[in-house]
C-alpha cells in the first residue's frame, strides 16, 4: 500500500499557515534569533556564527514546543483524529507526516537566518563555510530531536498547553544534561554528557560530522516517534 506520509505532511504544512499563532511563533523566533546574535556580531566582528548557533538551541526550548503542541492534541480535541485514523492510513504515517511538517517549518525558520550567514560570508574574512553548514545541519538535527519530543508530548493529551509544558520539560532535561556535569558523580557524568543534545550539537557545529553524533540524533528521534505512534495506537485499547 502506497504511503500517505506525503499527504499528511502537506495537509499539516498548509494548515500551519492558516493559523495566526504559527506566524507569531515564527516571527518571534526570527526576532529573538536576530536580536541576540546581531547584537554582538558587529561588536566583535567575528567571522563565524558562533553566537547564532549558541542562541538558537535556547530559543528552540520554547519555539519547538510552540510549533508542535497542536500537531496531535488539537486533532484529538476537535475529534478530527477519529476521522483521520479511520481513513486507510497507518498511525505511523500520521506521526511521520506530522513530524516532517514540523521539520519543514524549522527548515524555513533557519532559512530566514541565512541573512546572517550571507552577511558573514560577505564581510567576514577566512570564513569556514564547511563549519557554517555543519552548524546548520546540527541545528536541523537538534530541531528534529525536539520536534519528535514535541510530537510525543502532543500525542499524550488533547490540551495544547499541557503539550507545550510537557515538551518544554523533556526538552529542557536533554538541554541541561551537559550543563550540570560538575554536580554529578563521575560515572554518571559520561552518561549525562552522551545523552545531552548539547554535547552532540556542539561537536557537529565545530565542523565535524561524526557518525556517532548522527546515530545519537537519529536514535532519539526514532525513539520519540515510535513512542508517539504507540500512544496513538493505545486509543484502541483504552
Amino acid at each position: 500500500m502506497k504511503t500517505n506520509i506525503g499527504l499528511i505532511y502537506k495537509k499539516e504544512f498548509s494548515s500551519f499557515f492558516n493559523s495566526a499563532v504559527a506566524y507569531i511563533t515564527l516571527i518571534v523566533f526570527l526576532l529573538l534569533a536576530g536580536w541576540f546574535s546581531m547584537n554582538t556580531f558587529f561588536l566583535i566582528n567575528q567571522s563565524d556564527l558562533r553566537q547564532l548557533f549558541s542562541v538558537i538551541p535556547i530559543i528552540y526550548l520554547a519555539f519547538i514546543p510552540a510549533l508542535t503542541m497542536n500537531l496531535i492534541a488539537e486533532e484529538k480535541n476537535d475529534g478530527t483524529m477519529e476521522f483521520l485514523t479511520t481513513l486507510p492510513v497507518s498511525d505511523a504515517d500520521i506521526v511521520v507526516g506530522k513530524f516532517l511538517a514540523s521539520m519543514a517549518l524549522i527548515g524555513i525558520a533557519l532559512l530566514f537566518t541565512f541573512t546572517q550567514f550571507f552577511t558573514v560570508l560577505i564581510i567576514g574574512n577566512n570564513v569556514d563555510i564547511g563549519a557554517l553548514l555543519c552548524g546548520y545541519i546540527g541545528l536541523l538535527l537538534l530541531g528534529g530531536v525536539y520536534s519528535a519530543i514535541g510530537l510525543f508530548a502532543s500525542s499524550i493529551t488533547d490540551n495544547q498547553i499541557v503539550a507545550f509544558i510537557v515538551s518544554f520539560l523533556i526538552i529542557a532535561i536533554f538541554f541541561i544534561l551537559d550543563k550540570i556535569l560538575m554536580f554529578v558523580p563521575g560515572f554518571l557524568s559520561t552518561i549525562f554528557q552522551y545523552m545531552s543534545t548539547g554535547y552532540h550539537f556542539e561537536s557537529i557545529s565545530r565542523g565535524v560530522i561524526d557518525s556517532r553524533n548522527i546515530i545519537y540524533f537519529a536514535s532519539i528521534i526514532t525513539f520519540f516517534l515510535l513512542l508517539s505512534i504507540r500512544v496513538l495506537e493505545m486509543r484502541k485499547w483504552r
Binding site: K2, N4, L7, K11, S15, N18, S19, D78, G79, T80, M81, E82, F83, T86, L87, P88, V89
Partner: peptide
C-alpha cells in the same frame, strides 16, 4: 464513515478537503 458530531477540518476549503480525502483514499 460519518462519525458522531461529524468532525471536519474547519479551516479547510470544502473542495480542498474533499480532494485531501480523495487522495488519502487513493
Amino acid at each position: 464513515y460519518l462519525p458522531e458530531h461529524n468532525p471536519l477540518y474547519e479551516d479547510m476549503i470544502v473542495y480542498d478537503f474533499l480532494k485531501f480525502v480523495a487522495k488519502m483514499r487513493k
